[in-house]
Nucleic acid binder design. Structure first.
Lengths: 190, 190
DNA sequence: CCTACCGATCGGTAGG
DNA sequence: CCTACCGATCGGTAGG
């Protein structure tokens, strides 16, 4: 583990507590006492509780967008691209479990303006993902489906990993990504 | 709309507000003022804020369990059973959008004891769902998959409907259920 | 990084 | 269903 600045320690601690207690259920005093300092001292490193949420949500959004652009900028066929996109998504979630949880569940607590900006970025991600499905149809590899619907369904499966992923569990992130891709491509039926 | 008791009005109003602001972000004063009464008056009908959450989570859990038992108690082949289970799940969500949202997102705010009980019921639901997949394998209809993993993935897709379902949208609950079943069974690949 | 503190708001109760 | 109120806790600031 590389050394964290005090600010990074505060944010990491906050994310961990927000994962189990939620944004609103985590007080500045909770965060401070986990770090064995007083609540007032937090404000030398961050400007507000809201800032923790904003920086978490937007930093995670950026990671996901970098991941999907990386996939769509390289040429592969749609199946390979889908596999890469899933792998990136699962990697980002499992490498940032607490932050991902906050990103997925607590963005609703953003103030109006940043929330709109957040939704904009999320929509961009969905659009990039949709491009993969469209490519798959054009290539004749994928069924023609309602793409908006399909992307929401796929992303819900990917995001749910944050609920049950256990770093000590049987499946590692690569295996999870592989299974998910397989399921998305072929479904249950023999 | 049938007439609601005061208690039911309070709970319905609370669910609606908790859907947009969360459990912790909704105060008793918020609920009261939406009903144009004083916060203290709420306590003639309910005993605590916690009770609203508990009754919402457990009433929804019961609906889902009734739905899945109904499916598993009747004999059909696994594909038909899956279609029925999905239809029931989507029907319950779309008929109780606000309550479903609270059920899916806010159960973490339950106190320790009811939360354990809630998780127990949720596990029972997952187990009943898993039975369908096992039946499908035994019948030679479904691929052999990691069932626990598959059920979590399927339920995540079903639950995500609560995020984007719009009663005025293009797809009605039946169509959504049909598309989801199709996706679960056959995936994207041609 | 701390002490001392602010105004606001919270869930809930007593008593009518 | 209301008035009046309680103790607790909240995010945050002033000043060192």
């Amino acid at each position: 583990m590389t050394e964290l600045t005090r600010r990074e320690q505060i944010i990491a601690t906050a994310q961990k507590m927000m994962r189990s207690q939620g944004y609103q259920g985590t007080s500045m005093r909770d965060i401070a006492s986990a770090l064995q300092i007083e609540a007032a001292s937090l404000y030398n490193h961050i400007s507000s509780k809201d800032e923790i949420l904003r920086s978490t949500c937007f930093e995670m959004a950026e990671k996901f967008l970098i991941g999907i652009h990386e996939v769509n900028d390289i040429y592969f066929n749609a199946s390979e691209r889908l596999a890469m996109a899933v792998r990136n998504h699962i990697r980002i979630i499992t490498e940032n479990l607490n932050a991902s949880f906050v990103f997925i569940h607590e963005w609703r607590n953003l103030a109006d303006e940043p929330r709109k900006e957040f939704i904009f970025l999320r929509d961009e991600y969905e659009n990039e993902f949709r491009k993969i499905l469209v490519t798959g149809e054009d290539e004749g590899l994928f069924n023609e489906v309602n793409n908006k619907f399909a992307v929401l369904t796929i992303l819900s499966s990917l995001n749910w990993v944050v609920e049950w992923y256990n770093p000590e569990g049987e499946m590692d992130p690569q295996q999870i990504a592989e299974k998910l891709t397989e399921f998305i491509l072929t479904g249950l039926k023999k």
